[in-house]
Structures are given as C-alpha cells and as structure tokens.
Design a protein around this nucleic acid. Structure first.
Lengths: 228, 228, 228, 228
DNA sequence: CATGAATGAGTATTCATTCAT
DNA sequence: TATGAATGAATACTCATTCAT
C-alpha cells in the first residue's frame, strides 16, 4: 500500500540520523578528551552542541555507547589515512616511511585520540580487547604480505615478520603516548625520521652488528647472564 | 608548661606509620588495578586489608593521595630494580640488555603497575606530568653518560644520545602497554631479545643499511616527499 | 550555527524555577528550624516536599546555598511587613508602636526565623556579617530620618538618633530570642506595650528623672565608682 | 577497715580531677567559640592542651558533656561577677548601673561566651531550657526584692517589677549579641551609660511623657489601632 | 521529534568514642 | 593513669537516564 515515500508529513531523511551521530561524535571526542569519562557530564556536551540532553540519548542509547562510537570513529579515520598514505607503487622503505609519517601525523593533528585510547582502557578494563587493538590486528595480514614481499626483494633482512610488526607497533604506540603525556615538543616529521633511522639501521656500530641469527646471538647474548 | 601533660601512656611506635602505609599501598596497587580509580570503593580495600575504613584515612588524607602514593611506590621499585640490574662492570651491550630485561621483567611480575600508569593519566589529566615521566627524566643524565661512553668505545654508532634514549623509552613503554592490553603472550625474555635484535641491528638488509648520515639520508629519505 | 539544533521541544516555563525555589524555601525554613543545620538531612526535606533529592540540588547548588536563601527570604518578608505597617501619615509615637508590633508579630507568627538566625551565626561564624544585620543597616537611613523629624516636632527628646535606634534594635532582638528560648508565654501585643512603656517613659520616678544632659549626668553617674 | 588514706600506692589528690576539669574547660571555651560545635574536633583540643585525646574522655564522658560543663563554668563566672559588683550598700540607681556594667563588662572580656550561648541553642534545640535562662531565673527573686525596695524608696516608678526585669534582660541580651555579631565597636562603659540613659528616662519629651498608667495609656495607645 | 525537569543510586570523608598497651 | 591507633556510622552531592510535554 505504501509507496517508498509516504507523502504525508515530513519526508524522512535516511542519512540524517547518521549525520547527527557523526556531528555528536566529533564534539564528543574533544569533550571526553578534555574531561575524562567519569567527569564528562552529558549535559555539558549537549550544551556545546546546542541541543537538549534528550537528543543525545535519542541517537545513542547510553553514555557508554556514545563513547565507544566516538573512539571507533577516530580509529577508523586513523586507519583510513594510513592506508591511503601507504598505497601507491613505490619503494618499500618509502612505504614504511609513509606509514610511520601517517601514523604520527594523525595523532599530531588529533591528540584527543590518545586520550580516548587511555580512557577506554582505564574505564573499561573488563572489556576483552580495546578498539585500537582490534583494528590493529585487522591490518596484520596486509602488513605481513607487504613485509614478505620486501624481504623477497632483499630490502628487508630475513627475519620473522611478526617481530617486525610488533616492534613498529610498540614503538609508535609508545611514541604517541610519550609525546602526549610528557609534552614532548619535537615535530612529528622529525620524530618519524629519527625513529626510522634507528628501526631501520639499529644503533650498533658496523663491526658490532650481526647480520645472521648465529652472529647476533654471539654479539648480543652474554655467555653467563649476570655473574660473568 | 602544660600542667596536665606528662609522658605516661602508650609509647609511640615510630615505624608503625611507615609500615602501615606500605602494607596499604601493596594491597592498593592490586585493588586500583582491578577496579580502576572511580569504581574503587575504599570500603572494599579496607575489607581486603581487614581494617576499618577510618584506618586507611588515618594514613592517607584522601583516596587520591593513596593512589599517588601507590603509583610512586611502584615506580620507585621499578627504578631501583633496573638500576640494580644495570650496575656492574660488563660489556655495554650487555648492560643495555640487562636494562631492557629488568624493565620488561618488572612489568611481567607486576602487571598492575601498567594499569596504574594508565589510570593516573586517565583520571588526573590535569596534573602536569605523570609520576612515570618524572622518574624517567630523573634517569636521563645517567643514561646519557653511559651511551656517550659506549660511543667513545666504538660499540654504539655516533649519533644523538637523546634520540637513542627516546626510542628505547618509546619502544619499552609501548611494549608494556601492548603486552598488557592486547593480551600478548610472549615471554618477557624472548620479547627482550626480539626487541634488542631490531633496535641494535635495524631491519634493513646489509646493502640497504646506511652507516653515515649522508648515506642514511639517501637510503631513507625519498626524493619528493609525497607528490613523487 | 548548530545544524542539529532547532526550537522544537518542550517549551521552557520561565517562572518555574522561581516558584520551585520559593516552595522549597518555605518548607526548608521549618525544616532547618526543627533539626538545626548539621542534623538536617536533605533527604528528609526532599521527602517532606515529595520530590527527589536531586530536585533540590537542581534549584540550589548546595545545602549551604539553600540555607542562606531560606534565611534571606525570611528576613525580606519581615522587612517588608515592618515597612508596610510603619507607612501611613500618623502620629510619630504611633508609628514607633506599629513598628514594634510588626516586628514582634512577625516573629510570633514565624518563630522558625529566630532559629534560623541563631543557626546562621552558629554554623557560619566566619561569614563577615549575618543576613539580619545587613538588612538592619540597610534600614538605618530611613529610621534616622524618621526620628529626626520626631525630634523636630518635639515628640522625642533631643538626643543622638543612633543611640535610640540601637537600643530599640537591642531590645527587640533580645526580646525575640528570650521569648523563643525561655518559652516566655506573653502575647506579643502585651509585650509590645510593656516594652514601649519603658522605652518611651523610662523607669525612674518623676523626681529622679533628668531631662537635660546635665541633670542626667548627676542622676545616673555615681560620684565614686565603687568604693563609695 | 580502710583508714581515710590508703597507704599503698600514690596518694589520691581529690582536687586534681576538679582542677583538670577546669583547665580543660578554660581551653574548651575558646575552642568551641572558634570552631562551633560540629566542627570542633576533640583531637584539636587535646593537641592544644598537650594531652592525649583519651585524657579528655577520662574527665568528660562525651563531647556533649564537655560542652555543657564549659558553658556552665562561663555562666557561673558571669553570675558571680555581677553579684559581686551589685553588692554593697549604695544608691539603687548606682546598683542598677553597676549590674549593667558588670554584665556588659564580662562579655566584653569574654566574647567567647556569646558564641557558646548561640551554639548551645543552635545545636541542642531540643533541650528544654538553656543554661543561660536557668541561671537567669535563679536570680529573679533577688532582683525582684531589690526593685520592690527601690520602689518603696520612691526611686523607681511603681510598676510591675517583672516587666522591668524582663526589659533589662532583653536589652542586655540583645546588646551582647548585637555587639558581637555586628562588630559594634563602642566601649562597654559608654554603651552602659547610653542604655541606662534611655531605660531610666525614656525617650519621650517631658510633655509627652506619662507618669501614671492612665496617662500613659492615653499617650502611647492609639484610639483606633490602625485605621485612625 | 526534541526537550529539560525530575529522579535516586552510589561513595568519599569526618570525627566521636573505645580500649589495648 | 594516659595514650593514640582503630573504628564505622552518618550524609552531602553528582550525573546518567527517563519521560511528560
């Protein structure tokens, strides 16, 4: 009986709800980053948005849902920007470099996301795995394939790819926290170069460097763990 | 001067307060790590300690003070154990290795400290600098001197020492978070070796590696930043 | 500017807040008078009003603010009623009489205000000046003008007007406290007449009375302060 | 079997307990006046006295008992000093004057007693009658006898003595409150003279003054209470 | 649809009092 | 006898969520 569009009343805009959710999330990111989760009064967010409190609850069933939607949106955007930057048919080292730059650059432009990641963990410790790590792991196959290719091409040493992925993740994750929390002032471009310089080349002098696992073991591992 | 005062009465135990504070902090670390700060009901801590709630407030003026004392105690212990492990007159590389092991080992034995660091930041964002970074920076002179020595001895490549300190800090900081939050199961010893293997040697294949700043620039930096 | 804001929704009732505040204050006066400030549990007030505790905190930021608003409302009403009674173009003595009657009558009808005045002082001793004295002093210019007029008309003896204002204030203030705290049962009308009889005529017998400062000095001041 | 003094152990000093109670009360008066009753932490009083908290509880079963003992001691001292001053065989007017001076003088030297009276009422509103009024009424027969004598001697007009007692009480009671709470700066001697000048002579001009009840009624009472 | 008034569960903190030493 | 460590009852205030308008 009903055609697609019911002619009576205001026509429903199917994208409206989605757009409002986005607008709310955008403000909510700054809002949660500023106050933390428990101190963040939904009334204040409503005031900032110029809407009634009930309106927020119309689009998100609870403050918790709002928070997770906000974090998700941030992570998604981060992920998209990294993928965009790493696309293109260029040198492997250059691709790595672009990925690192994209990562650090995003957090440079959106420091509030660091706070959101901290808050997510601090307030919702019981949740199995944070949004961040879910996204991270979703990307692993892509990264693995990329690195295997680079090894085959002789650009990257032959070594377990997951080890490489993990250390890059750890370093970048640690870097954004440290940048944010310790007030480190270095530009993200400079930081990317510094970080790549060491991750790509190591810190050891040439003659102390080991290229093969066997040699490395000798160079790095001590004979007697401590008593020696 | 006070005519009604005299020295009879229960003698004061001067060490009591310190001991009580330590006992309370030890339990409080687990307690805050389990519940987070806002959800942590002081009554529950009192019950776990088998004391009255008033007793906790006798030794700490507020829940907040208790929390900071607890974090401080943890950081102090971590710091002490790292210093102990890094002491001794052995090979520079071995000292670095021991420091990394001590750091990862401490957090392996005391995962609750990771939670406390997160909580500190999440709940007390307004505080200028977290306990962790205060301690970290206090150690910088020591680390700098050590690395300069290692460079002079030709063990470590000549490069800015602060850059090395920062990347080690970032990587380790990121690693403990990632271990804890992503449920990474690797042994801390294995993780230390993996991490050192890359931080010391880099990931690039020998012929792509650059030893001098000039070479490095050519190997790592792209010709045209993005438009190429 | 806010795309998701519009003017639909429940219309705001601008008088609601004021009405609610008045309703709450009216009950709060009895409530604080009954329990005193520290023993007054806000939950009990909420129950008496048949509202949730949060509603009270919606209209008053704190128990303290509620208390001060309650006292203010009482003093304001007292002040208004006295002014109303003292208005009108009648005999000076009659105006004084009406003022005394209005003062005593108000406290007779609202004994709880005596308690509130006591409580204000007892709990908030640090506050510079109590609500009561602020209002009192605000009225001084009015009273002064009135008395000067009465002196010029020869109804009142020529003497410092402030001395008269003060003794009337002291006597009335003391009377309401004494009435209330000692359980004095006299009707406020009778008390007003008694009090006026003495304040207007003094207690000395005619031949002991002094009309001029010189005579007064001789009549009242002793020759030798004590040893006589 | 036991002689009056048990020879074993330290001989009991029967006055010791009383003296300590007095020492404690003396400090407690300032202490309660400074903090008010609920904010007065017994620990603080103990610290000021240089004794343990338990010691105070040894001499007073509860904080409440301590408070009442403190107020009692103050009122008793006030009462004693007034009686001392009013003794002696001098002129009736001079005796009244000395009583007023003694009253105002005591509170001038001991402003903390005003606070204690307020506190007693504010915190213990349920008690039937305050310490102050109990003492006051105990003195009534004495005052009555004195005034009847003064009337017989023709110094004081013939009028109900209780009316005189009440107005003096009200005025003085109001005066000490007003002095204390409004920060009135006048010297107590000047205040006594001002107050006596009005109470003894009234404020009406001579030709408006009425000496007999009949005349007074005509002078003070209006024909038609308000409509006239 | 949008609003904001009303609600009430949940918790840090104080301080009189006790009693083992 | 004097002490002070331990106790726990008592209470203001916040803020997510609901729902009448």
């Amino acid at each position: 009986m009903h055609s697609i569009s019911n002619k009576r009343g205001r026509p429903v805009d199917p994208g409206l709800a989605k757009r409002r959710r986005q607008e709310i999330c955008a403000e909510a990111a700054r809002f949660f980053a500023e106050f933390g989760y428990p101190q963040a009064d939904v009334q204040v967010l409503a005031d900032r948005l110029g809407v009634g409190k009930g309106t927020i609850y119309r689009y998100f069933p609870s403050k918790e849902d709002l928070f997770f939607a906000t974090v998700d949106a941030g992570i998604q955007e981060l992920s998209d920007q990294i993928d965009t930057e790493m696309a293109g048919d260029v040198d492997s080292v250059e691709i790595i470099r672009r990925g690192v730059l994209a990562y650090l650059g995003y957090f440079d432009r959106h420091p509030e996301l660091v706070e959101l990641l901290i808050i997510e963990r601090a307030e919702f410790r019981d949740r199995k795995k944070s949004t961040y790590f879910v996204h991270k792991e979703r990307n692993n196959p892509k990264r693995r394939a990329f690195l295997l290719e680079a090894m085959k091409a002789g650009v990257v040493r032959t070594m377990p790819v997951d080890r490489i992925i993990e250390i890059f993740n750890d370093t970048l994750y640690g870097a954004i926290f440290t940048n944010h929390f310790s007030g480190r002032k270095i530009s993200f471009r400079k930081q990317a170069e510094d970080l790549l310089e060491i991750l790509l080349n190591g810190i050891l002098a040439d003659d102390r460097r080991s290229s093969t696992p066997a040699e490395k073991a000798r160079a790095v591992k001590p004979r007697q763990p401590k008593q020696s």
